[in-house]
Write a protein that binds this DNA or RNA. Structure first.
Length: 597
DNA sequence: CTATCGGTTAGAGGT
DNA sequence: ACCTCTCCACCGATAG
């Protein structure tokens, strides 16, 4: 629809029924209207009156002590006690030409890469590119723990984290991961036994019944065992380690903390009884805190064998904790196009303040965990291939605005294929889905991203989901379904998108309140394939009492998981991917993780 | 067109 | 029980 003014060939701008020859005239008229309105509204007088009343009240209170509100902390960095009638006027040392005491800028890069010189040791911490935790070198476990700060590092904290990562975790992997050997796993219980009991078809009545009973039995009642504070700040991402018989939850928070909760260590010896040779200095709650990043830890992913945990951050870096190497290694980082970064993989991928890594996804065509995609706040998608020497395969603009998720299809055929797919190559794994602030979900074939930079990449299918932002678009494990969570309060399911082209239509669309507001992470509904072969998904919820909602593949609400321990909104949820029992995990805005099973 | 503002939202932690 | 802090999540409106 075009207004009359736009369709006129003569340029004219109307406002309040008057027409103006230029846009600027119209704007001026608008401003005059606004000023007149403000002047005639009496607001200015009212404000002056309120200011006076406020000062009066303040003067009155300054003679009597108040009992409400926060007491001004003695070490407050702001002004000293504020209620003196006149404060000394603040003066800028910079404007006065006075240099700061004992500190000066040694060198300054193009984007905030400032090296300080002089000063005390404390003040003189080096500032790294994008304020990252270090210059990109490996972080030992102790480094990563100590970066969390003195508030979280107590006697024995480092030792207990080291014990967990060097001993407990490798033992768990050796004991239970079936991935390296499919045959080994077939000797054990689980999928095979499920098949033999006639549950091979998800449509069979017995399979459905089993699924319903598994979902019905989920509980979150005991706050002592179901909930733990895993990170200091609000949780941006949660994942479970893939080992089938242990629950090890990783949560990433807003400040770049990575918390790992060994859930069933709960109840192990407390700090007092921990002087025990076999389990030196175990913490009572099994939570270990690290800080591999300085910005929001946006996505985490374990590789298939559970030996390497990748994490991406708004600070522009991707790190991997490798069980063999025992360090948090920076495997990719963005840099601006300053010549000094010419030899870096991420050279020229950082465009300054408005530029960060929003999400990460492993490339499921290669099972090494060494190839991955990144999406950025500026609508770009990168592909990084760390096999052999490592290269940035492409960095192309896929969208005009921020891309909240980039996902690569896995295309498992059945749940049992989970045990074998590592050896197969599924053709649909070159299918990518991106979604973000433009409100358009787009599907791409990675193989057809033009290497010629003058040719823009083109999606083969897309849909505009109502204009508002899309929080996430996730493929189900089979690849059959694509699930979107949107700011227009919808959950939508598309099917078989890789066979379509042009505008695609969702098969199901249901209403879901996704208005999390400013202080909670946005909802992102996520899939799971059960051992009964069903695809279900989980999403957080704003409803009271708090709950996590489990839906069937056709968007039927199967269960709202609630209980006494479910006291906060679980903004980011996930399933345990490999456990024989159904286990769901949610992360809250205060760093607490809730486990339902 | 781009930058900025106000509104919205929920939980923890201090007094 | 009440107050304060969170501050790149996003939308819609408005100023420049």
């Amino acid at each position: 629809m075009k207004s009359d003014t736009e369709t006129d060939t003569m340029q004219s701008f109307t406002f309040n029924g008057n027409s103006f020859p230029t846009y600027q005239d119209m704007v001026n008229a608008k401003r005059k209207r606004n000023q007149d309105m403000l002047a005639s509204s009496g607001l200015l007088e009212a404000k002056a009156a309120m200011d006076n009343a406020f000062l009066e009240e303040k003067r009155r209170l300054s003679t009597a002590s108040t009992t409400r509100g926060l007491k001004r902390s003695s070490e407050s960095k702001t002004q000293p006690s504020s209620d003196q009638t006149t404060l000394p006027r603040r003066k800028s040392s910079r404007l006065a030409g006075v240099s700061a005491p004992n500190i000066y800028i040694e060198s300054e890069g193009l984007t905030g890469n400032i090296e300080f010189g002089g000063g005390d040791q404390d003040i003189n911490r080096p500032s790294h590119y994008n304020n990252r935790v270090n210059d990109g070198s490996d972080l030992t476990i102790a480094d990563a723990v100590e970066l969390t700060g003195s508030k979280w590092v107590k006697e024995g904290t480092v030792e207990s984290a080291e014990y967990f990562l060097t001993k407990t975790l490798p033992d768990i992997i050796d004991d239970s991961i079936p991935i390296s050997s499919f045959k080994k796993k077939t000797n054990k219980e689980s999928p095979t036994s499920v098949t033999s009991s006639g549950l091979d078809s998800p449509t069979s009545a017995s399979a459905k019944k089993l699924l319903r009973s598994q979902i019905a039995s989920l509980s979150v009642d005991d706050p002592d065992t179901c909930v733990a504070k895993v990170t200091p700040d609000r949780i941006y991402s949660v994942v479970c380690h893939p080992c089938p018989d242990k629950v090890i939850v990783c949560a990433g928070d807003k400040q770049g903390h990575l918390g790992i909760w060994n859930v069933d260590q709960y109840g192990c010896p407390t700090a007092e009884s921990a002087v025990h040779p076999a389990r030196p200095l175990s913490t009572s709650d099994g939570v270990h805190l690290f800080k591999p990043h300085s910005g929001s830890l946006s996505t985490m992913a374990w590789n298939n064998s559970g030996t390497s945990l990748l994490s991406s951050s708004y600070d522009g870096s991707v790190r991997a904790f490798d069980v063999e190497k025992q360090v948090f290694e920076e495997i990719f980082a963005t840099y601006d196009d300053d010549d000094m970064y010419r030899d870096k993989l991420g050279f020229g991928t950082d465009n300054g303040y408005n530029s960060w890594i929003q999400s990460m996804e492993l490339d499921h065509r290669f099972e090494s965990g060494k190839c991955f995609f990144l999406s950025t706040s500026e609508g770009c998608v990168m592909h990084i291939d760390l096999r052999s020497r490592g290269k940035l395969t492409f960095n192309r603009t896929f969208s005009e605005k921020k891309i909240n998720t980039v996902r690569s299809m896995r295309g498992l055929i059945s749940p049992f294929e989970r045990l074998t797919y590592y050896h197969s190559f599924h053709p649909n794994r070159s299918t990518l889905a991106t979604a973000g602030l433009t409100g358009i979900v787009q599907l791409w074939d990675v193989r057809s991203i033009p290497s010629n930079l003058s040719k823009a990449p083109k999606p083969f299918a897309w849909q505009n989901l109502g204009g508002r932002s899309i929080n996430s678009a996730f493929f189900s494990p089979s690849g059959k379904r694509l699930l979107t969570t949107t700011q227009s309060d919808k959950l939508q399911i598309f099917e078989d998108v890789q066979t379509k082209s042009g505008v695609i239509q969702p098969l199901r669309s249901i209403h879901h309140d996704n208005q999390t507001g400013r202080w909670l992470s946005t909802f992102m509904a996520r899939w799971h394939t059960t051992l009964t072969g069903h695809e279900i998904f989980i999403v957080g919820s704003m409803t009271q009492p708090r709950c996590m909602e489990i839906f069937s593949h056709d968007a039927e609400l199967m269960r709202a998981v609630r209980g006494d321990a479910m006291t906060a909104v679980a903004s980011r949820c996930c399933f345990h991917s490999n456990a024989n029992k159904l286990i769901v995990v949610g992360g809250s805005s205060s760093g607490r993780v809730t486990v339902a099973r």
